[in-house]
Design a binder for these strands. Structure first.
Length: 318
DNA sequence: GAACCCCTGTTG
DNA sequence: CAACAGGGGTTC
């Protein structure tokens, strides 16, 4: 499940069902899901042996669990998870765990792409289901964060996994400094959409919400960061934060059964999208037919009237 | 900073 | 068949 609102929906679903639980076993059905784990399954098993989950944290699209040993001491490593393009983390109760596997009928088996499961001491399983295997699970050592603020939503302190060291704070993070992010955006020459998608300035924005934010702020995807005023850069960031908050409030954006929460439920935000996937339909603001173009290998949806290219004459310097 | 790769599946 | 899909890491 891709962008920040969808991942936060998953975190909130996992938190009450995993924090306080002990990890009894790691079941790996497809080792490719451990691509980011050095040492593979053996190393991960070692890191998880006898541990208890003490927090479920998210920064941007990265999730992690804090781990403590039998004595309650932090192990110094976090259990990282990323959902990639098609990943789901779902809780399976003991009743479901023993339920008949193949249900007849047209509905495809939701466990068809199960790659890995964590078996917890209360009998539940956390399944990592991932059709394309761009996601993964791995252990990462905790390091001190750059500032003293909590490392992410759900974090008890500033300790940050090394795997998330280069990851900026996201727009749902109270410690995010928007004016500073806006200033940083304006020092880069790349198109503003690429900058929103790069996770080192601000994290958690993906293709859907980048298009939505730029539509909202009436800015074209290929406007160079250096061509943005501070006011405009801030407006884009605020729009991105607001659209993601609205999506989160209704359970995130889902187009199909691939994007669901920890209980397998879909969100409702797709019906509220103004730009993404609406090419060929009229702009809800001005009625002009929205367009879709390929920008750096990904689709960009925009209104050719509301979102004009920056005038060539305007100075392109910081 | 952009191309290419990692994968599997659906759709035109 | 080719094009495309919400991610990001590595490579020129």
């Amino acid at each position: 499940m891709p962008e920040l609102p969808e991942v936060e929906v998953v975190r909130r679903g996992l938190e009450p069902r995993t924090v306080g639980r002990r990890i009894e076993d790691l079941e790996v059905l497809d080792p490719r899901i451990l691509r980011r784990q050095s040492g593979g399954v053996d190393r991960l098993r070692g890191a998880l042996a006898g541990t208890r989950m003490t927090a479920a944290v998210r920064r941007g699209k990265f999730l992690w669990w804090r781990l403590a040993d039998e004595t309650g001491q932090d192990t110094g490593e976090a259990l990282m998870a990323h959902l990639g393009m098609s990943g789901q983390l779902r809780v399976r109760t003991p009743a479901e765990a023993t339920a008949p596997a193949a249900s007849e009928g047209p509905a495809p088996d939701p466990l068809r792409h199960r790659r890995l499961s964590l078996h917890l001491d209360d009998g539940t399983a956390i399944d990592l289901i991932d059709q394309r295997i761009f996601g993964g699970l791995w252990a990462s050592p905790l390091e001190p964060g750059a500032d003293g603020a909590p490392a992410g939503l759900g974090s008890p302190d500033a300790l940050l996994p090394a795997a998330a060291a280069g990851l900026a704070r996201d727009l749902l993070d109270p410690a995010a400094d928007l004016p500073a992010v806006a200033r940083a955006l304006r020092t880069r020459r790349a198109g503003v959409k690429s900058l929103l998608l790069a996770q080192d300035l601000v994290s958690g924005i993906g293709n859907i919400y980048a298009d939505e934010a730029l539509w909202e702020a009436r800015t074209r995807f290929d406007t160079p960061g250096t061509a943005l005023s501070q006011r405009r850069a801030l407006a884009i960031l605020r729009a991105a934060g607001e659209v993601m908050e609205r999506a989160l409030a209704v359970g995130g954006t889902s187009f199909d059964a691939l994007y669901v929460d920890a209980d397998g439920r879909s969100g409702y935000f797709a019906r509220s999208l103004a730009a993404y996937g609406r090419d060929g339909s009229p702009c809800t603001r001005c009625g002009t037919v929205l367009r879709r173009v390929l920008h750096q290998g990904r689709s960009s949806h925009f209104c050719p009237r509301c979102q004009r290219p920056v005038p060539r004459s305007r100075k392109d310097v910081p």
